[in-house]
């Protein structure tokens, strides 16, 4: 920033500072990474402590559903990026369409997640269940972490759906336009982060078998 002495304070009549808004968003995303970072730390500690039992427990997870959800999320990251690009080129209709598709994918992800979790719970695999307590310590921890980490991630997806829906309304009402799209860009950044975290969760839980 040192080279950029012409900061927002000098432009007295412009109350908008897009660079500042993006910077704030990046700082927020940084805190999100640290939030999940704490979880990844716990995962690393217990994986190191119980490598065999983590392997065993990992077999129970449904790689197919995990893979489908990964594809869904990566595609939704693409559509949100396309939505930004479309609005930059003043194509409001395409931008709205892409955003709607993104939100649809987000719902689809949650639906899959719902079926995946209920299947687990039907098999008696959830924290504190009788079947769970019969398992070895490492497996209990694996499933505990599985529920917490994918649960926290799912919560972020739900928050993302809310944010993207609000942004969608703004675009429809022309409150976000091609000259003023920092809110859309920031929501896109958030969505990429949610995607990015899943990219790490997927192999750690579903693929290492």
């Amino acid at each position: 920033m040192a080279h950029n002495e012409h900061t927002a304070a000098t432009e007295q009549h412009v109350h908008r500072d897009d660079v500042g808004a993006r910077m704030g968003m990046w700082l927020f995303l940084f805190t999100e990474i640290l939030l999940f970072g704490g979880m990844f730390l716990v995962y690393a500690v217990y994986r190191y402590q119980y490598p065999d039992q983590f392997l065993l427990a990992g077999m129970e997870l449904n790689t197919t559903i995990g893979a489908i959800n990964t594809i869904i999320l990566i595609t939704s990251s693409l559509t949100v990026a396309l939505s930004i690009a479309a609005l930059q080129k003043d194509n409001k209709f395409l931008s709205i369409l892409m955003l709607v598709i993104t939100i649809f994918f987000a719902f689809l992800f949650m639906v899959n997640k719902y079926f995946e979790w209920t299947a687990k719970i039907d098999h008696g695999i959830y924290p504190g269940s009788e079947q769970m307590l019969e398992k070895q310590n490492g497996e209990i921890l694996f499933f505990g972490l599985y529920y917490i980490m994918t649960g926290l991630h799912g919560l972020h997806i739900i928050i993302g759906i809310v944010i993207l829906s609000v942004i969608l309304m703004f675009i429809v009402k022309d409150k976000i336009t091609s000259t003023n799209l920092v809110k859309l860009e920031n929501s896109g950044l958030y969505w990429h982060l949610v995607d990015l975290i899943w990219i790490f969760l997927f192999p750690l839980f579903y693929l290492i078998q």
Binding site: A9, G20, M23, G24, L27
Partner: peptide, 16 residues
Amino acid sequence: LNFITTVHRMRAPGMT
């Protein structure tokens, strides 16, 4: 995050 952005973006001219 508010303060960091403020310091980066809002300094008066000459406030290096």
